[in-house]
Design a protein around this nucleic acid. Structure first.
Lengths: 224, 224
DNA sequence: TTGTCAACTGTCAGTGGCTGACACTAACGT
DNA sequence: ACGTTAGTGTCAGCCACTGACAGTTGACAA
């Protein structure tokens, strides 16, 4: 009765969560202030007062720590996408998934890391060659997963029908460009990014909004 | 008079070339047979009988060795592209650059590394996560460079006119997909790759072949 | 030819990311 | 209250990579 909901989750698990969060916060803080490569694992673990070994029990690598929040956001997006009703077109589904992910993400995020730190981390990734490489690979993997999801929704096969991959590629392409421009700009706020994303996606809409339940390849094309 | 054309290039330079080539050949051979991560620098340098330090004097990193041949091919392509006459359309120029690069590359390549080893290396890169990441980043950088080149040819600005980047992206996209499919296929010969590339690029042609000297976006484009 | 200079290489010592093994402590279930 | 087990620290070590210094060997001029 000394604690609120602490009994639902054990003390052990709570401690774990605390050290992980601390490691993550300190890591991102150091990365974004002194640079990724300039920061050693020892600096991080010294600040949190745990052993280096503990760091690697939570994060498989230094990189993984840098991408931990990004990973979280991406998973929220995937969850949202899976939850979209089947009536929505692929584009609507992806777009709405982004919208609804924004909300659930920002609160789940804030519990671990201030949003502002997440923003700085994103900028760090885009400006650190080693991290750019990893980011591109991760994006490619995410695209593949999303394409598969979209294809399933529409009852298509990713390997025979090019439309899922193409749609996803252009969608994430827009997202990526948005992030880049936002990074270059002055206003690094969440709202600015949200608004910018909406505006850019609006341009993409019409091109992808058609109905997909009818074939389109080669000869069996209709005069849509 | 004991040597043919050895006097044109000093003994020193020749030795350098030899050790570099040896390091590269052994490195790629080991990478492709036992895997990239399973191969240590010591294994390579032991086989060539030089110190580990020497390896890092020739290659800034282990990765750089893995991409040395790819780098060479890309540079040949860029050279070919720069040499294309101004009359050619962007697409023609890129396509012809690829064609003419094939020849100059294969002979320059063979002097250092057997073509077959290059092929295996490419497959290795595509199947090693750490190298995939680097490859994607390198490709992005190459695309940027090519887009800049194309824009210059056409007297455009990459930042205001989206067409150069779009064209390059689709072009390299086709090239990339071709490489992937070729990698999955049975026939891993150069000819197969060449032919496949031609066939795929043929599909892309019409969409990009238009004249670019006339404006198409916004209003403030100049007619020259 | 010889001697000086510069380039190339090896050795050594050290840093930082990362891992396996083992022992210890503390939360957990009974 | 007590055995179990998850989480942690310590230690020893591998591997990629770097700086500093010294030795060797082509290059080039006197």
């Amino acid at each position: 009765m000394t604690s609120g909901q602490n009994t639902t989750i054990g003390l052990r698990a709570r401690k774990k969560r605390r050290t992980r969060d601390a490691l993550l916060r300190v890591a991102l803080e150091l990365f974004t202030t002194q640079g990724y490569e300039q920061t050693t694992i020892d600096e991080i673990t010294d600040a949190v007062e745990v052993s280096q070994r503990t760091f690697f029990r939570y994060f498989a690598s230094k990189e993984e720590a840098a991408f931990a929040v990004v990973d979280m956001v991406e998973n929220k997006f995937l969850d949202s996408l899976r939850a979209r009703p089947a009536e929505e077109t692929p584009f609507e589904a992806m777009r709405n998934a982004v919208e609804s992910a924004w909300d659930s993400v920002s609160e789940a995020l804030e519990a671990v890391v201030p949003v502002e730190l997440y923003m700085r981390t994103y900028l760090l990734i885009e400006s650190t060659p080693a991290l750019v490489a990893v980011h591109l690979r991760r994006t490619a993997e995410l695209e593949e997963e999303v394409a598969q999801l979209i294809a399933d929704r529409e009852g298509l096969d990713v390997n025979t029908d090019p439309r899922p991959r193409v749609a996803v590629a252009s969608f994430t392409g827009v997202m990526r460009v948005t992030g880049k421009i936002w990074g270059r700009g002055r206003v690094a706020s969440v709202e600015a990014l949200q608004e910018m994303t909406r505006a850019y996606l609006d341009h993409l809409g019409p091109a992808l909004a058609g109905d997909w339940r009818t074939p389109v390849c080669d000869k069996d094309r209709r005069p849509a």
